[in-house]
Write a protein that binds this DNA or RNA. Structure first.
Length: 188
DNA sequence: TATCGGATGCTCT
DNA sequence: GAGCATCCGATAG
C-alpha cells in the first residue's frame, strides 16, 4: 500500500480508516507531495525536519507550521525518496468524545451540533489536534505503534481530483483528492 | 456566504 | 528577514 508513488497512495488512502490509539475516522481528503515537486518540503533535499519523508514507506511525518499547528503525512514510495501524502480531512468514526475534548477543551454535549462535528476534523491541523498527534509522533510507523490504517473496504467510492490547498509553488499540479460529497472535506 | 487579518515560531535564505 | 502543506473570529454584503 505505502510502497506506491505519492499520487497512488493519496488515492488509495481515501476511504481507509485512520486510528491513533483507537481514535479516528475515515480518510476523506489527501494531497500528494514528491521530491521533484516544488511544493514539497523535500524539494531541496533531506534535512532533519523532513527526514521522515525519506524513511520507509508508511513512516509518519509530522511537521510544525504557522507557529502553532502540526500536520501529518505518511511517507510513500521507498526508503531514500522524499515522497509522502498529507492527510487533510477525516470523517470521525471512533472516539468522538475524546476528539471533542481535545479540539474544544470541553466535554461533548449530548446532542452535538452537526456543524460543530464537522469542524472537529475538516482540516490537516484540526485532525491532528483531534487525534492527539504531536511532533513526538514524527518517525512513528503505520500499523506498528499507535497509528493504524484499515484499508478501504468499498471499491466504488466516488473520488474528486483538484489542485492542492495553501501552496504557492506548483499550484497547478492536481494532486489533491477527496471523497465526493463528504461533509468533512476542507474545501470544494 | 465570502473575504481579511492576526496569532505565533520554526526553517531556510 | 521572508515565508509558511493553517485556523478562527470579525466584518461586509
Amino acid at each position: 500500500l505505502f510502497a506506491g508513488t505519492s499520487p497512488e497512495l493519496a488515492r488509495a488512502l481515501l476511504g481507509a480508516e485512520l486510528l491513533v490509539d483507537g481514535v479516528g475516522g475515515i480518510i476523506a481528503e489527501t494531497e500528494a507531495y514528491a521530491q521533484y515537486d516544488e511544493a514539497s518540503h523535500t524539494f531541496r533535499g533531506q534535512t532533519k525536519r523532513n527526514a521522515a519523508m525519506f524513511d520507509e514507506p508508511g513512516t509518519v511525518y509530522v511537521y510544525f507550521t504557522y507557529g502553532m499547528h502540526v500536520c501529518m503525512n505518511f511517507s510513500a514510495h521507498s526508503k531514500g525518496v522524499g515522497e509522502g501524502v498529507l492527510i487533510r480531512a477525516i470523517e470521525p468514526t471512533r472516539g468522538l468524545e475524546e476528539m471533542w475534548q481535545r479540539r474544544f477543551k470541553q466535554p461533548m454535549p449530548d446532542d452535538p451540533p452537526h456543524k460543530r462535528l464537522i469542524q472537529l476534523t475538516n482540516g490537516p491541523a484540526k485532525l491532528c489536534q483531534a487525534l492527539g498527534v504531536t511532533l513526538a509522533d514524527n518517525h512513528e510507523r503505520a500499523n506498528k505503534g499507535r497509528f493504524h490504517i484499515i484499508p478501504n473496504q468499498k471499491p466504488d467510492i466516488a473520488i474528486m481530483q483538484t489542485t492542492r490547498v495553501g501552496i504557492s509553488r506548483a499550484a497547478d499540479r492536481p494532486w489533491r483528492w477527496y471523497v465526493a460529497g463528504n461533509a468533512w472535506v476542507s474545501k470544494l
